[in-house]
Simulated scan of single mutants.
Amino acid sequence: MTNASATAQTTLDDVAVLIPAYNGQADVNLTLASFQESALVHILIVDDGSTPPIVAPALPNLKIEVLRLAQNSGIERALQTGIDALAQRGFRYAARIDAGDRAVPQRLAKQRAYMELHPRVAGLGMWTQVVSRAGEPLFMLTPPAEPQAIRRQRFFRSCLAHPSMMLRIDAVRTVGNYRAAYRSAEDLDLFVRLMERYDCANLPELGLYYELNEGGISATKRRRQIGSTLRLQLRYFNPLNPYDWLGLAKNLLHLLLPYRTLQRVKQKLLAPRAGH
């Protein structure tokens, strides 16, 4: 066992889980209950003006703080506020997850150990199992692990599953934090800026159960998300990278196809086959 691994098993004092939440108390409770770590887990819930306010449940091995915003301002501001609050509290790492998603046991310890050994990595994701609201497995997201491949394919596929990410807080603030310039694509905007100065990587193992929610941002604000993604693609477009061309074509196709049609296509392409 390496020293970094041993340290990760005994302390997570410099890691905090960052959860933006707007209503959905039951989803918040489900997500919090999924964390199973050997050390105390620090949680910061940014309540984005929920009615009634989000309440921290009493759960073992979790230290939960709720930071309430006076009014609903959107996920971009909630995340920006959360990162700044964690920096003020002295945390080094922010582990993202969304209400309704579930963490795999020891996710935080594994990510922290990796980031301690790879100081150039500012954002670290994990493979993600996409599930229905009822918890049924739909398909797996298994993006590339290496920073170079992620950088090349950043606009072609979802290389970094936002709710699976662990982020270096100082790096996030150095590049300008989350921002509302590309609404509903605030994660991709941040990752692109991080990759201009640092690396982003993935641990090639399951770290998250992601709930496919037709009330979520990817469904309800889909056209805004695609529009923001296209603007990012055009701003950072590299004509020598074939994946940038493919990503541009893919997003234009997304504008034409209904959300449910795209999900059915993903399930057929990515669902596990018999015998595999």
Rank of each mutant, 00 (worst) to 15 (best):
N29V: 11
N29W: 05
L30M: 12
L30V: 11
T31N: 13
L32F: 13
S34L: 02
F35S: 02
F35N: 04
Q36K: 15
E37T: 12
A39G: 02
A39R: 03
L40W: 02
V41M: 03
H42K: 12
H42Y: 07
H42P: 01
L44A: 06
L44T: 01
I45H: 07
I45K: 01
I45P: 00
V46S: 00
V46L: 04
D47T: 13
D47P: 04
T51L: 12
P52C: 08
P52I: 07
P52G: 08
P53T: 05
I54C: 03
I54L: 05
I54H: 01
V55N: 13
V55W: 04
P57G: 03
P57I: 04
L59T: 07
N61W: 09
N61H: 14
L62V: 09
L62D: 03
L62P: 07
K63W: 07
K63P: 03
I64K: 05
V66Y: 10
V66Q: 11
L67N: 01
L67W: 07
R68A: 15
L69Y: 12
A70T: 15
Q71H: 12
Q71M: 11
Q71E: 14
Q71R: 11
Q71P: 01
N72M: 15
N72W: 10
I75S: 12
I75K: 14
A78N: 03
A78W: 04
A78I: 06
Q80K: 11
G82L: 11
G82Q: 09
D84F: 09
L86G: 10
L86I: 13
L86Q: 10
L86H: 11
Q88G: 13
Q88R: 15
R89W: 06
R92Y: 05
Y93I: 02
A94Q: 06
R96F: 14
I97A: 11
D98E: 12
A99I: 13
A99E: 13
A99F: 10
A99P: 13
A99L: 09
G100Y: 10
G100N: 02
D101Y: 03
D101E: 09
R102Y: 09
R102C: 14
R102V: 14
A103L: 11
P105I: 15
Q106Y: 15
R107Y: 08
R107F: 08
L108Q: 04
L108P: 06
L108E: 02
K110L: 06
K110T: 09
K110D: 06
R112A: 05
A113Y: 00
Y114C: 02
Y114H: 14
M115I: 00
M115Q: 00
M115W: 01
E116H: 06
L117V: 04
H118T: 03
R120L: 07
G123L: 07
G123K: 00
